[in-house]
């Protein structure tokens, strides 16, 4: 059952330097109980996609086209103010920056209790007990003792876990998790991923998991979307994307992963940088860096084509 549908989503920023198109015709869906991994170049638009879905695009950013539907109901309409309560209860978010989510002036216990009480009718005592349980679930040691502590008293990874607890304690149907495990050691990471998978399985939660960690993707995601310069470059089942990527950008990405087995002098890298939003080349946005570029790539923009088990926006697969 499809829970989230994103259809032709386009996001623009009017700036003094002109109109920036940060997301261009992004389409995907996530089913209940499914984890969609989202990877891609830094600045490609992963966080913006999440922000647009939650309705938290910061002005002057705005949805300039496309639709977002949750359970078949549009949640991108101008009347989104009316929908916000639904959104708050149904969509949970773990933002990339844990510090902006946590209020430095309140203890983490107070923040958790408040969030729990806005979503569930619970007494202070029950809400507090639940808050301790969530802190334990995300692996905060001595949760009962530390629930009164303030965000700055926690290490980077512990703050990140508090943010995860804050997002999960409202028991949302759709979870947007933007780099939820970057500040975590591999062991806590395994614990959080196990927790996410358990939630998706037991509650049918749909998860959009943005991460740069291919190990996490390989372990947690059912499908993967690869983004480049505001578009989806490739999308497909996790095994196919990780092990037989079709798009030259995805291939370069997989080749850049440092190996744990042996040490090399230099890491493979994709030379050059992603184009700036003000200077996206005509044709394929990856063409200035693509080792397989040919004439057509520089003039026409490729749509998603079937490419083996995945779909890739690349002229190589134009049948």
């Amino acid at each position: 059952m499809t829970l989230l549908e994103v259809d032709g989503l386009t996001v623009e920023f009017p700036t003094r330097r002109g109109l920036l198109r940060a997301l261009d015709q992004v389409s995907f869906s996530i089913g209940a109980g499914e984890v969609l991994g989202v990877v891609g170049e830094s600045g490609a638009g992963k966080s913006l996609t999440g922000a647009a879905i939650i309705g938290l695009l910061e002005p002057p950013g705005r949805i300039a086209g496309g639709q977002i539907r949750l359970d078949g109901r549009r949640i991108d309409t101008p009347t989104r103010e009316q929908l916000r309560p639904i959104r708050g209860r149904q969509i949970g978010a773990i933002f990339q920056d844990p510090l902006t989510t946590l209020n430095p002036l309140y203890s983490i216990g107070r923040q958790l209790v408040e969030t729990i009480q806005t979503h569930l009718q619970l007494s202070d005592r029950d809400a507090r007990a639940r808050a301790v349980r969530w802190l334990e679930e995300v692996g905060i040691p001595a949760a009962r003792q530390r629930i009164g502590a303030y965000p700055h008293e926690f290490s980077g990874g512990m703050r990140q876990r508090v943010v995860i607890a804050l997002a999960l304690c409202a028991e949302p149907r759709l979870l947007i998790a933007d780099e939820p495990t970057t500040a975590l050691d591999v062991s806590v990471q395994a614990q959080i991923i196990a927790l996410l998978k358990r939630l998706t399985r037991d509650h049918g939660t749909a998860v959009m998991l943005v991460t740069h960690d291919m190990g996490v993707i390989a372990e947690a995601a059912d499908r993967v979307a690869v983004m480049y310069a505001g578009r989806i470059a490739e999308i497909g089942p996790v095994r196919a994307v990780v092990q037989q990527p079709a798009h030259p950008y995805t291939q370069g990405l997989m080749d850049s992963i440092p190996s744990l087995q042996h040490r090399v002098g230099r890491l493979r890298q994709i030379d050059g940088a992603m184009p700036r939003l003000t200077a996206i080349p005509a044709g394929c946005a990856f063409s200035p860096r693509c080792p397989k570029v040919f004439h057509r790539c520089r003039v026409e923009r490729p749509d998603l084509f079937d490419a083996g088990d995945t779909r890739a926006a690349c002229w190589l697969y134009d049948a």
Partner: peptide
């Protein structure tokens, strides 16, 4: 041993078991 496995052999990771002790005590 707790490192995620990119080869997707399906081998489960072994998180370091047990409670993370409190640095206060």
């Amino acid at each position: 041993e707790a490192i995620p496995d990119l080869a997707m052999t399906g081998k489960p990771r072994t998180p370091v078991g047990g409670e993370v002790p409190s640095p206060i005590d």
